[in-house]
C-alpha cells in the first residue's frame, strides 16, 4: 500500500489496517475500518471526507486519544520505525506534544479558559524538556513571536477569551510546535475561522512547516484547502479510504465516483456552474454500513457486484489508488468514464 512514492523519501508515519470502533449498547460502530496510508517526511498528507467519514477518529487514533467506549481494535501505526500501538501510556505521553503534536478545529474551546496563554505554552516545555517555569515562559515568548502574535509580551499574560479566533488558533499552533515536533496533525484547523484569517493561518502553517521541516497530516472537509496545502490526498468515506493520490493527480484525474461527486457538488467561487451535480442520498449510519462498497447505495454506476462485494484499494499504476470495481478487470458493466459520465439518469435527486 506504500508503493506510490519514490522509495528514497523517508516515511515519517505509516498507518496499516487501522481499525477503531466504538462499543455502544447498540453494538459495535466501526468508525475507522482498515485504513492504510503513510506520510512521507517533510510532506503534507490531507485526509478529506464529510462528517462521519472517520477522518478525525483516524487522527485521534494516531495520538492514542480515543476515549471509551471507543478503542483502537487493530492494525499498526509505525512512527519512526516504532509501533505506537505497542507503546505504554507513559511512553505515549512522552511522544504527544513532543514528537507528534495536534491542533484542533475550535480555537474557542480548545484552550483552557482559566490559564494564561503563556502558561499553556510553557507547560509543554515543562513537561517535555523539564524546564523551570521561568525558562519555559521565556521560550513561550519566543513561540508567540514565531507564530506572529502582535505584542507577544503582553499576550503571554492574556487569557484565551481576550484573544480573537485567529489569535487563539495561533496560540494553539504555538503550543503544538513548542517542542519542534516531527509530525503535526491538524484537525480542521481553519474551519471555524473567516476566510481572510484562514489564509493567514494556512500561510503560517506552511511557512513553519518548511522552516522546521515537519511532516503534516491535515484533516479537512474543504477540497480548496487540500488543493492549496497538501502534497498527497486520501479521500475517506464511511470509515475507509476510497482514493489516494498525489494532489495534482487527484484533482486532474479523480477516479472514484465519490471523489468525482464531491468535486462536482462543490459550489465554486472561481468558475460559473449552472446546476450542481449532487450525490444522491446520505452518508450511511456507522452502525448500519452496507456490506459491499460503502458508496454503492449512492453511486450512479453501482451494479450488483458493488452491493455485494467490497473492492480493495488498488494501485492504478499512474499514482492513484482507488477502491472501486470500475477500475478493476473484474468490472462486469459497460465501460465507464467516471468523470464524464457522472450523474443520475432520471431526476431521482433530492
Amino acid at each position: 500500500m506504500d508503493n506510490l512514492k519514490d522509495n528514497d523519501t523517508k516515511t515519517i508515519i505509516k498507518v496499516d489496517d487501522l481499525q477503531t470502533s466504538f462499543f455502544t449498547h447498540k453494538g459495535e460502530v466501526k468508525a475507522v475500518d482498515g485504513v492504510h496510508f503513510d506520510v512521507p517526511a517533510g510532506k503534507t498528507l490531507g485526509i478529506v471526507g464529510e462528517s462521519g467519514s472517520g477522518k478525525s477518529i483516524t487522527a485521534l487514533s494516531i495520538m492514542r486519544l480515543i476515549e471509551a467506549p471507543g478503542r483502537v481494535k487493530g492494525g499498526s501505526i509505525t512512527f519512526n520505525g516504532e509501533d505506537l500501538l505497542a507503546k505504554s501510556e507513559a511512553e505515549m505521553r512522552r511522544i504527544r506534544g513532543n514528537k507528534i503534536s495536534m491542533i484542533f478545529q475550535e480555537p474557542m474551546t480548545s484552550l483552557n479558559p482559566v490559564y494564561t496563554i503563556g502558561d499553556q505554552i510553557a507547560e509543554s516545555y515543562q513537561i517535555h524538556q523539564g524546564l523551570s517555569k521561568k525558562q519555559a515562559l521565556e521560550k513561550a515568548l519566543g513561540m508567540l513571536e514565531l507564530v506572529g502574535i502582535p505584542s507577544p509580551k503582553a499576550r503571554l499574560k492574556a487569557y484565551p477569551h481576550e484573544l480573537s479566533g485567529g489569535m487563539r488558533q495561533r496560540a494553539m499552533i504555538a503550543i503544538a510546535l513548542a517542542c519542534n515536533p516531527e509530525l503535526l496533525i491538524a484537525d480542521e484547523p481553519t474551519t471555524a475561522l473567516d476566510v481572510t484569517i484562514q489564509a493567514q493561518i494556512l500561510g503560517l502553517v506552511n511557512d513553519l512547516q518548511k522552516d522546521l521541516g515537519m511532516s503534516m497530516l491535515l484533516i479537512t472537509h474543504d477540497l480548496g484547502v487540500v488543493a492549496e496545502t497538501c502534497d498527497y490526498v486520501a479521500v475517506m468515506y464511511a470509515g475507509k479510504i476510497v482514493e489516494y493520490a498525489d494532489v495534482n493527480t487527484l484533482f486532474a484525474n479523480p477516479k472514484h465516483p465519490y471523489t468525482v461527486g464531491l468535486l462536482k457538488s462543490l459550489p465554486r467561487h472561481d468558475i460559473d456552474q449552472e446546476e450542481l451535480e449532487v450525490i444522491r442520498g446520505m452518508v450511511p449510519r456507522p452502525d448500519d454500513l452496507p456490506n459491499g462498497c460503502r458508496f454503492a447505495p449512492r453511486c450512479p454506476f453501482a451494479r450488483e457486484m458493488c452491493v455485494e462485494r467490497l473492492p480493495d484499494l488498488e494501485d492504478q499504476g499512474d499514482g492513484n489508488q482507488v477502491r472501486c470495481w470500475i477500475h478493476t478487470d473484474q468490472w462486469d458493466g459497460p465501460e465507464v468514464n467516471v468523470r464524464d459520465d457522472y450523474g443520475y439518469s432520471e431526476s431521482t435527486q433530492s
Binding site: Q198, A199, G224, V226, A227, E228, F251, H269, D270
Partner: peptide, 10 residues
C-alpha cells in the same frame, strides 16, 4: 476573493 482556497492545485 483571493483568500478562498481554490479546489484546483494547478
Amino acid at each position: 476573493l483571493s483568500a478562498i482556497p481554490v479546489p484546483d492545485p494547478t
